[in-house]
Amino acid sequence: MKSIGVFSPAVNVNSAAVLSSIPLQMIYNFNIFYYVFYFLATFLMVIYKSFKGNLTEEVVPIVINLVLTIGSMLLSLYYLLWQTYVLKADVIINAILLAIYGLEEVLDVIAVSTFARIYT
């Protein structure tokens, strides 16, 4: 008998043993719910960030938008660069998202500087 991996018991390598990991499958199932939460939370934050600061011409909500967008950019970079298995679809949708985030960041800085210059 030869031990294979940390989670598997000693099994005969030549036998047809199941080597899948139950904790890994549990995490996969948890991720299904987390992605739904992530999507809804991001969607609600985009709605909040888009209308609260720009239309009221307030600097603080736009600065909060800048900070939150940086966090979203890091998550997008993870899906684009650092996950183990990256599909072409991942590359396309995350590249588009990063381009939109980059444009948003530039426009946020312009809006903040305009509001600060006019209202101070």
Rank of each mutant, 00 (worst) to 15 (best):
K52T: 05
I92Q: 06
K88W: 08
Y119G: 08
A116N: 09
A17G: 12
Y34C: 04
V91Y: 09
I27L: 08
E105R: 03
N31S: 04
T56E: 13
E58A: 14
T42G: 14
K52P: 01
T56M: 12
I32R: 04
I22F: 10
K88H: 02
F39T: 02
V106C: 02
V67G: 01
V18S: 14
G102E: 13
L75Q: 07
N54T: 15
S50A: 12
L80T: 00
M45P: 00
A10F: 11
V109K: 11
V36G: 03
L87E: 11
V6Y: 06
L107C: 13
I70E: 02
T42V: 08
M26V: 14
Y28L: 07
I22K: 15
F7D: 12
V6S: 08
S20V: 09
L74I: 11
D90L: 00
N29Q: 09
V112T: 00
N94E: 02
I32A: 06
M1P: 07
S8N: 13
V6G: 04
S76G: 07
L55P: 00
D108Q: 15
G53P: 01
Y85W: 09
L75R: 05
V18W: 03
L24R: 09
S8V: 08
L68N: 14
I96R: 10
L103Y: 13
F115E: 05
V59E: 01
N65P: 02
A99G: 13
S113Q: 06
V6R: 12
S21C: 10
V60Y: 11
K49A: 07
I70Q: 01
S8K: 13
F43K: 05
V60S: 06
T42M: 04
L77F: 03
V106K: 05
L68M: 15
T114Y: 12
F51E: 00
V91M: 12
S15L: 01
G71N: 03
M26P: 01
R117V: 05
L87P: 02
